[in-house]
Design a protein around this nucleic acid. Structure first.
Lengths: 354, 354
DNA sequence: TTGAAAGCGTTACCAG
DNA sequence: CTGGTAACGCTTTCAA
């Protein structure tokens, strides 16, 4: 039998309250008595107040949940997600708060359960795909949260940290357009819930499933619209997953037609690297060269010479956690837009003469 | 006021037990009644049973702790640690268990508190440095745990997953010795608790602080002993942290003497990369060339052409979590030694003619 | 199939 | 500074 606080109280001959105070409110008793109690506890092997009981009584847990709306084990393989976690952990560390990583089972009903059962004081929601259901559960629980996806219907009181997806996307697309590219493919993960890999027909950007994808595609379209390339002239390519393999599979055959795209704008660096993989695999290599851009500026992007949009990944995580842990008094301060930068490297160049 | 289970019971006109059963034991009531209860709950905005209260009553939490005996935010920047986490998360995911990452405050007293307060059913202890105190707390709490460090005094019932540090180290050192190297430096992080960066005098391997370091240094010494190089002839170099910067700082000046080492065996890839950084920075570059080896085989090692020891990082995490989540009936199965492989790349070569 | 009663181990309030 | 008392919100026998 593990000893309880009661056992220590009995051993010392004081009440439970006093033992409790010895742990949680040292100023409420004499140092001598406190020592006597702590000694007795050590003697008995009492490991301190039971965390669960304490949380129940106090009404808070001392840990924040980090929710990935994708497989948790996948999150660790995504460099951007890892840097986000680094930021969250830095803030959590400063606060003495733990981080609970909640894995989501495939079935959505079970996933709801997972979120309902998480013993946390709030959530950082790292948005990968559709997370409305998760936010619903969190709101129903009355827990605070901070999300990283732009939500179209975000309430004013909803805390959020992100970037101006549309402006950032427009910036990199303008760079590509400025190089003369007009036959362009836009590559994103899970554009539509159940679409197959490869080129897709999308009536408009609004059809895209995920807000982040919508934002980026809109920015891409903005820039090309300005040089006279309509939405209908752009090729949207769907990838089944945010991985190099998925990207390579998605663009297989894309360059085989009579008028192949001369540039591919990807929604993430990982996807862009996959496109480079696919191009490198082609017989004859990437000839004529195809310009490729990414998004995020993960470490691998530099090594691969990828032109991309840099966003401050760690800051995103750190600020998300800080917004959760010290809510700003001013509601407007709950919406944070981080700066981005266009990073031009070797993966983009002028359109080759045909 | 957030509604409680009681409120739902009142609304439907049944007892709390029945509502509880509706959530946790659907087979204990009619489907119709269950629906009625769940509907009422939805109506009232009842988010399901409070996780903390449920844990208190049930006696378990449904989450495992992952304990890094270093800064948590550092763990995410260590590629090996991230891959370990990937493995843990894969196992946790399969089990429907959450992972609690516990940050340790600098002061050890507070760190004990952090471990005492973690609401978890067990711990995966990722060993970085001295973790005895943490294991003490965990044992006092009566929680199961799995560690990744070889412990000299490990009880037979102690679960552990790791590699044969000594044999692996001997293997890579034998490779270096076979290339003719005899003036060799051994680089490790935190060899002694408070030693400064740089060369160190160590009477013997037994003085090294951390078991992992001891194991690796012993293996290195074994291999060189076999070719007639005594312990006293080896230079042990201390790094203040497992980072490229720390390694570079530690070996600064190491190659300036009259008889500099021709090879550096590092205790991790990250340290080895730091040595390569330092060599590249030298006026004249690394000339004559110095052989460098690492440990772990992180992704960056391949790109850098680093000769190293490969160990299965994800398997380590996955198996640690599995050992915790499904304890093997057979105690012997609780000790897992993973295979390692010597990976020879360009960073090692024959001793240059002097 | 349902309900009453008894805790799970702690902390907070308030009187002494 | 100390100790009683009353929750915190739920699950689990066990009897009806």
């Amino acid at each position: 039998m593990k000893p309880t606080l009661q056992a220590v109280a009995d051993a010392v001959g004081v009440s439970r309250s006093t033992v409790s105070n010895a742990y949680s409110r040292p100023d409420q008793l004499s140092a001598a008595l406190r020592e006597r109690i702590l000694d007795a506890a050590r003697q008995l092997g009492y490991p301190g107040p039971n965390p669960t009981a304490r949380s129940l009584r106090r009404g808070f847990v001392g840990s924040i949940g980090v929710l990935f709306t994708s497989q948790l084990s996948y999150a660790f393989t995504d460099p951007f997600a890892v840097r986000f976690l680094t930021g969250v952990s830095a803030a959590a560390e400063r606060h003495g708060t733990s981080m609970l990583l909640v894995p989501l089972p495939p079935a959505q009903t079970d996933a709801r359960r997972a979120v309902e059962n998480a013993a946390v004081d709030g959530f950082c929601v790292y948005c990968v795909a559709d997370e409305e259901w998760a936010l619903d559960v969190i709101r129903a629980r009355g827990l605070p949260y901070v999300s990283t996806a732009p939500r179209d219907d975000a309430g004013a009181d909803e805390r959020y940290v992100g970037i101006d997806e549309r402006a950032a996307a427009r910036g990199i697309a303008a760079h590509v357009a400025g190089l003369g590219h007009r036959r362009v493919a836009l590559l994103a993960d899970a554009v539509l819930p159940d679409a197959p890999a490869g080129p897709l027909t999308l009536d408009g950007v609004h059809e895209a499933w995920h807000p982040t994808t919508r934002g980026r595609l809109t920015g891409f379209a903005d820039a090309f619209g300005e040089v006279g390339v309509d939405w209908a002239d752009l090729t949207v390519v769907n990838a089944l997953g945010n991985s190099r393999q998925a990207a390579a599979a998605a663009v297989a055959g894309l360059f085989d037609g009579p008028a192949p795209p001369t540039a591919v704008l990807a929604g993430s660096d990982v996807l862009a690297l996959g496109v480079l993989d696919a191009l490198a695999q082609r017989p004859g290599g990437a000839n004529p060269p195809v310009s490729v851009t990414g998004f995020d500026d993960i470490p691998e992007a530099a090594a691969a010479g990828l032109t991309t949009v840099r966003q401050p990944a760690e800051d995103k995580g750190r600020i998300a956690a800080e917004l959760l842990l010290d809510p700003p008094a001013d509601a407007a301060a709950g919406h944070v837009l981080l700066p981005t930068a266009l990073v031009v490297r070797a993966s983009t160049g002028p359109v080759p003469r045909s």
